[in-house]
Design a protein around this nucleic acid. Structure first.
Lengths: 198, 198
DNA sequence: TTGACAAGGTCAACAGCGTTTACATATACC
DNA sequence: GGTATATGTAAACGCTGTTGACCTTGTCAA
């Protein structure tokens, strides 16, 4: 008994399914964090994990399955879309400013950087929808316009991340942190205002 | 005389430098438009142009050079960042709504779709900076806050494009076109407001 | 006219990628 | 013990972008 697996019911597996899986995943996480998704090859991950390349595809289907799994474990906007409605935009704005200042985790920054990889399009599509737009829509009450409001909020949040990637957003960061947070919160409030009121 | 080249001064070139270049570029443009940057290989472009693969690298340095050249020819936000200041945000908002409705050129849509390709990171970085942020900053007068204002505007514009890619933005498009345009214009106005006023 | 030089174009190869297939090995149950 | 099954391995497949050696064509100078 090596006590690794949970499939103990049927015909017993062998050496270390879960252990191997975990080793691959840990290596992928580390390398993606350091170098980004596109820059790390399957063979490199396998070598780092001390494992055969083919096992990546065996256990995760394909390279992108590694990232899917990593994303599944980490929340992108953890704990923001819950709690008081009055302070929602303030919380989101603070989160956005933190990101502008590079205060998100190293992994998160690397993943932002890999967001446009063609291979990951479907992964990020599902991720943004299920971790941001959908929860926002539900949080806002699910009315007819909730989806549109959620989309506008998402646009601003994603756009800020992109601008930081493209030009560093030094001018934004040079604004006082509180001023910038208030401005973004105000923008988010306007995103959430009823349509036809401007 | 085959009348192709402009270098006629020195020792004469041979068959068709400019003609070949143009043929490659036209093929790349067509294929990128139809299938996107990442999905089209160098060999495919060469075959479509009836040309040897190596010529792509000879004339454009690398595959990404093709896209650089195409972007150089087409303006991304042509003619928006000029003219009356009072209607700037309205013009930008109308442009954004057009994009949301898929009314940009097929090429532009394909390029939006390829925006995150790792190979193109530097290309798009320079493009967005030189075709959007920099002109905006200059247009806004170049004051200390102009850059920050330009960054916010860019964030919103890029974010809207991304949301359309990710979830289709059907809820946004379902809003009345005029209402949506007004909302985005209002957001852009707020992006441009002085800091510390909220 | 003949030689030399350079530009344009071709061919085949390189190193790397993600992925798959056929095979060997070790484990657990009957 | 035999056998099915899960785990791990090795080697290849087809593809990518890119490069270097080669051939061909055209033009100029001697």
């Amino acid at each position: 008994m090596d006590g690794t697996d949970g499939t103990g019911s049927g015909a017993g597996p062998a050496r270390g399914r879960e252990a191997t899986r975990a080793r691959i995943l840990a290596s992928a996480r580390e390398l993606f964090t350091e170098e980004g998704y596109g820059a790390v090859s399957s063979r490199k991950i396998a070598a780092h994990a001390g494992v055969n390349v083919a096992l990546i595809n065996r256990y995760f289907g394909a390279k992108r399955g590694l990232l899917t799994e990593i994303l599944r474990e980490d929340g992108v906007f953890p704990g923001l879309i819950e709690g008081e409605r009055d302070t929602l935009t303030r919380r989101l704005a603070e989160h956005a400013v933190s990101r502008l200042h590079g205060e998100s985790s190293a992994l998160q920054r690397a993943l932002d950087h890999s967001a446009g990889d063609p291979d990951l399009q479907a992964v990020y599509q599902g991720r943004i929808t299920s971790a941001l737009i959908d929860p926002l829509e539900a949080y806002l009450g699910g009315g007819t316009d909730s989806r549109a409001h959620a989309s506008l909020v998402t646009a601003l949040m994603l756009g800020l991340t992109r601008v930081r990637q493209v030009e560093g957003a030094t001018a934004l960061r040079a604004q006082g942190r509180e001023d910038l947070t208030r401005r973004i919160a105000a923008l988010l409030d306007l995103c959430l205002a009823d349509f036809g009121e401007d």
